[in-house]
Simulated scan of single mutants.
Amino acid sequence: MPTLMILDDHPLVRQGIRGIVSTDERMSIVGEASGTQEALAILDRTRPDLVLVDLNLGGVNGLDFIQQAGALEIDCKYLILTSSATTDELRRAQSLGVGGICLKEALPEDLLYAVDVVSRGRKYYDPVFMDDLMDQTPATTEPAFSELTPKELEVLAALARGFSNKDIARTLYITEFTVKKHVSQILSKLGLADRTQAALYAVSRGLVSFELSPV
């Protein structure tokens, strides 16, 4: 059962988040905090699997908390909750390994989905941030995309679905070493920096509907 902590400086917001998350019996909330120092203490004591972090903590950026929390070396994932985020904040969130960003205005089922996805080690970014995230991706020409082999297209489609190397290897009946080679080739051919950019690129190209087939 995944354990969660909530960090938000507004009591009513925390109450609302707690109410939504509590509807999923698979989740267990182990702590709540209104400030970063309190949150760090709870984090160190309870060591949750996932922390829901408000981006704007009354003048303190939630990303600063995530950076400070990294020093505790706790195996924990982070989901940012916000009404807006700048391109610089999105870029910093990615560099800190944040699992996802969800709008505070999201429907309850969207928040539950984001929590589930991130708690399982995959990435979730609200569609409203997709354009800004894609702006960080180097321009890709059609010829570069056409250079991808059928198997590389399958791997790229799997990345868009948030599959790990192990998942891809099992689905395509290839070794994890081969998957790593394919991912490296994909990034090189498309001029992308990492798996996240590759996944965003695949979504923009509609590859989420690409059918995976075994070799």
Rank of each mutant, 00 (worst) to 15 (best):
Met1Ser: 06
Met1Val: 07
Asp8Ala: 09
Asp9Ala: 09
Asp9His: 13
Leu12Trp: 10
Arg14Met: 08
Gly16Trp: 03
Ile17Val: 15
Ile17Leu: 15
Arg18Lys: 15
Gly19Ala: 13
Glu25Gln: 14
Glu25His: 13
Thr36Val: 14
Leu43Glu: 10
Arg45Gln: 15
Asp49Lys: 01
Asp49Cys: 00
Leu50Glu: 04
Val60Cys: 08
Gln68Glu: 15
Ala69Asn: 04
Leu72Met: 09
Glu73Trp: 12
Tyr78Gly: 03
Asp88Phe: 07
Leu90Ala: 09
Arg91Ala: 15
Gly97Ala: 02
Glu109Gly: 10
Glu109Asp: 15
Glu109Cys: 11
Leu112Ser: 09
Ser119Ile: 01
Ser119Pro: 11
Tyr125Cys: 06
Pro127Ser: 02
Val128Leu: 10
Met130Trp: 10
Asp135Trp: 08
Gln136Gly: 14
Gln136Glu: 14
Thr141Pro: 03
Glu142Cys: 11
Glu147Phe: 10
Glu152Thr: 02
Ala160Gly: 13
Arg161Asp: 08
Gly162Arg: 02
Thr171Ile: 03
Thr171Phe: 03
Thr175Ile: 08
Thr178Arg: 02
Lys181Cys: 10
Gln185Val: 05
Ile186Trp: 06
Ile186Val: 01
Leu187Ile: 00
Ala193Leu: 07
Asp194Met: 02
Thr196Ser: 12
Gln197Pro: 04
Gln197Lys: 00
Ala199Glu: 03
Leu200Val: 04
Tyr201Thr: 06
Gly206Leu: 04
Ser209Pro: 12
Pro214Gln: 06
